[in-house]
Amino acid sequence: MKELPQHESSAVDVTQLVATHQLSVWRYLRSWGCSPQEAEDLTQETFLKVLEKPFEQLTEAATRAYLRTVARNLLIDRRRKEGRQTNIQAVENIDQFWVATDSQKPEQLLEFLTECLDGLTERARMALRMRFEDHKSRTEIAEALDIGEHGAKNLMQRAKQQLRECIEFKLKDES
């Protein structure tokens, strides 16, 4: 088990630290399958854990990476205690994605997503809006678009894949 270096520098501005990084920690936990409330709780725990010892900010990216590691370990520990398993495919890809966002401000990500959404077809956009904005079931979406349920599923899967690729491209491009 590796020990992280303990910095002896002066205390950080807690409010500033939290304000800057809370959103990326919360999103990271969400991508690990946490509900919004659970992610909120764990974000709080993450910062408290990190602030237990003197902490020096080297770079924004290093701080975020450190926060993500602590958050993930806290989540793993919580899952162990609950006796729950969360199966997540392609964990490496998740981490790679978040590493790629380190150079961006957290707000930028939603801007990318909005732009990428505009690039989708009208039907795909409508399907995603019905799903995430109106909380419609897949059956309702299928009925509205006059396609089968499998068709609706495929449509949304493809749309999300496009979105992912689009965002990753933008992240690469920006960096």
């Binding site: 409010t15 809370q22 974000t43 408290l48 495919q89 997503l113 909005t114 959404l117 995430f132």
Partner: peptide
């Protein structure tokens, strides 16, 4: 999609994170 789904929920479903700064500072 572990990344896109939560982001869409945040953007379209308004599942946004409240500001935790004061709360965490207080707990700290």
């Amino acid at each position: 999609d572990p990344i896109i789904d939560p982001l869409l929920e945040e953007l379209l479903g308004q599942q946004q994170m409240p500001d935790l700064s004061a709360r965490i500072a207080k707990a700290h």
